[in-house]
Nucleic acid binder design. Structure first.
Length: 602
RNA sequence: GCCGACAUAGCUCAGUUGGCUAGAGCAGCUGAUUUGUAAUCAGCAGGCCCGGGGUUCAAAUCCUCGUGUCGGCACCA
């Protein structure tokens, strides 16, 4: 085992520094522990820089940190580097590693450093951000880099790595700055760990909802339709309809009323709401009869108009309106990504108009609603409170009150949350729900937003006990976020193997021969009666072929029927997961399906 | 929007340094076969090679402008 660093007072110190300062502490060996990988990957980033410098001598380097999924280095060179060059760089890295250069460290003054890197404007940029008078330099062979470490003692220890991606990145993460080249990589202490990681990446790729959506015929996109406008195919339509209907019932149980606003509204209204000023660049507008209309990017204004349709008493509150609201938002081209980021989507949107003293109970009720849904789909989740953003309407005081109200509701009910400073909506602070899927990735879905501003802007009111006019509070909330995004996430979460209750097709029926078609149709009708969709595979293919075809659709259950089954009024079931077969009477079978579909209640 | 890559049949992909009639598998259609748990056999059809414009005797192939997709960055009210 190689000692690569020590841990002293919780701090990781590389061997170079430890020797220099005479420190001693707990030894860190080269293995796949987080501390060890951090050092290894950081040094691998340097080795990559060394290789790049030798291949592209004019290269200048910015920063090369370790990140969650490995490491990267940002640099600039006059040469054009593409995906194909990664292999070449890897090869060069290996050949340097074989030379087993020691990684040496020394300190110099900031002025000396500026002189040393005077030809590298990126390094000078880095130094501008370092407040100290001295900096440390790490040297391996001819290559020297400004760095605070920690590093491996020897680059010969770097053996199992892979350069994974090449992309552009803004200097300092600011889109006003120049764009640099960024190469991502990953490194491990053992060959097995690297292999496992690559397998995991392949698994994530297999689950990609864009690929599965295409294979399973859920949805598609077409160039001639326009970027970011999804087309729902029959199978996707069925899946979506199931989700919608489950959720409809759940809303009704909780006292929400279905309503619907128009797809576009006069721009004057968007000016009143503040969307025109704060969100206009993402909106689609159209002019007709000398009037300007804005296609809705949110549903709140429509729901406000529903609220305004009659006078409300304090006794009526809370009033809850919900709508599967279709919205259009002009997202930037580079942001579009399958169903995850689109320009037209449907939100499971609702607005709760309530009294100030009802805020807490309403927030808690929504949080509970979220919990029911997310746990049904086996998602872990966490909540974030987002505060006032740069672009915002309303006074600081109102923002302070509403942010505090959200925190109070969470604190009082001992719900854990994190703070996202400046991440709120322009009209109010929000609680975002971030879910974690089956392979550990995080997604932002639902959101609960507290809004004092729109009621003010639209002069909403209700009659109080003294027959006085009081302004209601508005809570905007979506639980799935959007059907598009949520179905995309579900697809990856389940790797396409949707549970029975939302699966596009519940059962595939395969008659052994043509003579069994009639019974198949009979079964299929009985399934429709219990709200289950089935598909009969009657094509003139071998039995084996039809089973294979059905399996590939990832249908939860396949039933085969032949002479046996018809005689005994049974079905032969083949399970998707286990591929085992068993027989059930027709009655038992229908009951099983019914149970599986109805087992879910949000 | 920015950096880079890519776009060939419904889908997945071949297509030599620009050069004969642009190919394959799957899916589709037709016929034979009537099947007991992951691919029966044979035949047929299917293409404005993403769209404009250009270079060339000759363009799927080279250049250019769009459109779309992918990987990141920035964005995500």
């Amino acid at each position: 085992m190689n000692e690569i660093a020590i841990k002293k007072d919780g701090e990781i110190i590389d061997t170079q520094t430890a020797k220099e300062c005479g420190f001693e502490g707990e030894q860190i060996h080269l293995d796949n522990s987080p501390e060890s990988l951090e050092i290894l990957r950081h040094s691998t980033a340097h080795l990559m820089a060394q290789a790049i410098k030798s291949l592209y001598p004019d290269a200048e380097f910015y920063v090369g940190p370790v990140v969650k999924e490995g490491f990267y280095y940002d640099f600039k060179t006059s040469a054009e580097i593409g995906e194909g060059d990664l292999k070449k760089i890897e090869k060069q890295m290996l050949s340097f590693a074989k030379k087993k250069y020691l990684i040496e460290k020394y300190e110099i003054s900031m002025d000396e450093a500026k002189e040393k890197f005077k030809d590298d404007h990126l390094k000078l940029e880095v130094m501008k951000r370092i407040p100290s008078d001295t900096v440390s330099i790490y040297k391996q062979g001819e290559f020297e880099d400004l760095c605070r470490g920690p590093h491996l003692p020897n680059i010969g220890l770097i053996r199992y790595f892979k350069l994974t991606k090449i992309a552009g990145a803004y200097l300092g993460g600011d889109s006003k700055n120049e764009m640099l080249t960024r190469i991502y990589g990953i490194a491990f202490a053992t060959k097995e760990a690297l292999k496992e990681h690559m397998t995991m990446l392949a698994e994530a790729e297999k689950r990609d909802h864009r690929k599965l959506g295409n294979e399973m015929k859920l949805f598609t996109f077409r160039e001639e339709v326009g970027a970011g406008f999804p087309i729902w195919l029959p199978a996707g339509g069925r899946l979506r309809a199931r989700l919608e209907s489950l959720l409809f019932k759940a809303h009704r149980k909780r006292g929400y009323q279905p309503v619907r606003g128009p797809e576009m509204l006069r721009s004057d209204l968007w000016k009143t709401s503040g969307h025109y000023q704060n969100y206009g660049e993402n909106m689609y507008f159209t002019h007709i009869d000398e009037l300007e209309f804005g296609v809705k990017p949110m549903n709140c204004v429509g729901h406000i108009k529903v609220y305004e349709d009659e006078l409300h008493s304090y006794r009526d509150l809370p009033i809850k309106y919900f709508e599967y609201g279709v919205v259009h938002r002009h997202e930037m081209t580079g942001a579009l990504h399958g169903l995850f980021r689109v320009r037209e989507f449907t939100q499971d949107d609702a607005h709760i108009f309530c009294r100030a003293d009802q805020i807490e109970e309403q927030i808690i009720e929504v949080v509970d609603f979220v919990d029911k849904i997310m746990s049904t789909f086996e998602f872990d989740y966490k909540m974030m409170i987002s505060t006032k953003p740069e672009k915002a309407v309303g006074s600081d005081e109102v923002w302070e009150i509403s942010t505090q109200a959200l925190k109070n509701a969470m604190d009082k009910n001992e719900l854990a949350y994190e703070i996202d400073e400046g991440g709120g909506a322009f009209y109010g602070p929000k609680i975002d729900i971030k879910i974690t899927d089956a392979i550990g990735r995080e997604w932002q879905c639902g959101t609960i937003q507290l809004d004092f501003n729109l009621p003010e802007r639209f002069h909403l009111e209700y009659n109080g006990e003294e027959n006085d006019k009081i302004q209601p509070v508005m809570i905007h909330r979506a639980i799935l976020g959007s059907f598009e995004r949520f179905i995309g996430i579900l697809t990856e979460h389940y790797a396409g193997e949707f549970p029975m209750f939302i699966s596009p097709t519940q059962v595939a029926i395969i008659p052994v021969a043509q003579t069994h078609k009639e019974y198949a149709k009979l079964l299929s009708d009985k399934l429709i009666d219990i709200n289950a969709d089935s598909e009969i595979y009657v094509k003139n293919d071998s039995l084996n072929k039809r089973i294979r075809t059905a399996e590939k659709t990832r249908v939860p259950m396949i039933v085969v029927i032949g002479d046996e089954e018809i005689k005994n009024k049974t079905v032969a079931i083949r399970d998707r997961r286990t591929r085992e077969q068993y027989n059930l009477s027709e009655e038992e079978f229908l009951k099983l399906i019914q149970t599986k579909i109805n087992e879910v209640n949000f």
